[in-house]
């Protein structure tokens, strides 16, 4: 093991910490290894004493966690709840569409898939089912963003958070029934037989769970981004080079 190799390995693992802190850690670590060498320790012994690079990196990240740990527990649970609602909703609508005779012209999903793969034009003819599938995939993306956001906030670069914000916003807009979201009004109307939307389907569309989740995620990303930016600025001011 060489000093540069060890330090390089650690630096790679903590690359998402602010640059000023990384530079400082790098210098301190190099100094420490040099001190150990001057003190008669061997390189192999140093790795045993200091721990393997990945463990050292984890210790460093863990040590900085209090500065970056935000109170997200409540928000995390709220997010899980908001994510489960559209899942139940989408799954129940999928079951409805696949099992109700003739909602999109098919008797069963078996026949649907058979016709889908036999004749491409079937895709265009059966928008509800295709919409649901696209909605479901987009929903999974949103859930993935939410998971990353609430579990990896320390490791996330601000640019990644910003990218997730943009994507969530685009997906959110796509999931609105006026664009490509599942048209709840028709499905519920057909199922229940009553209209609860009055004359404002656009407004109702705002309350649809999968759309709501996407917008929730976008707002959360934006807030995390702003918070991380301000926190890093404060942190860097506290530890100038």
């Amino acid at each position: 093991m060489k000093t540069e190799y060890y330090v390089g390995k650690v630096m790679k693992k903590i690359r998402l910490l602010p640059k000023r802190i990384r530079n400082r850690i790098k210098r301190d670590m190099e100094n420490s290894i040099t001190d150990r060498l001057e003190n008669g320790e061997t390189l192999q012994n140093i790795e045993t004493e200091m721990g393997i690079p990945s463990q050292t990196a984890l210790d460093i990240l863990d040590g900085f966690r209090p500065e970056f740990k935000w109170r997200v527990s409540l928000l995390r649970y709220a997010y899980i709840f908001c994510a489960l609602v559209p899942l139940l909703y989408i799954l129940s609508v999928l079951v409805y569409v696949f099992t109700t005779p003739n909602p999109g012209g098919f008797i069963s999903y078996t026949k649907f898939f058979a016709e889908l793969f036999r004749e491409l034009s079937a895709v265009a003819m059966r928008p509800t089912i295709i919409r649901l599938m696209v909605n479901f995939v987009l929903y999974l993306f949103i859930c993935a963003f939410g998971y990353i956001l609430y579990s990896q906030q320390l490791l996330l670069k601000r640019n990644y958070i910003l990218a997730m914000f943009c994507l969530s916003l685009v997906i959110g807009i796509t999931l609105h029934p006026s664009v490509y979201g599942v048209d709840t009004s028709h499905i519920l109307y057909n199922t229940v037989g009553i209209s609860i939307f009055g004359n404002s389907p656009v407004l109702w569309g705002l309350l649809q769970p999968q759309f709501f989740l996407a917008i929730y995620t976008a707002i959360a990303c934006l807030l995390f981004y702003i918070r991380k930016s301000s926190q890093l600025t404060t942190f860097q001011n506290e530890f100038p080079e």
Partner: peptide, 17 residues
């Protein structure tokens, strides 16, 4: 107390901060 560098640095930076 066998402290490792990975634990010490963040602690020192925090005390300094």
């Amino acid at each position: 107390f066998c402290l490792k560098e990975g634990t010490l640095y963040p602690l020192l930076y925090r005390l300094e901060g």
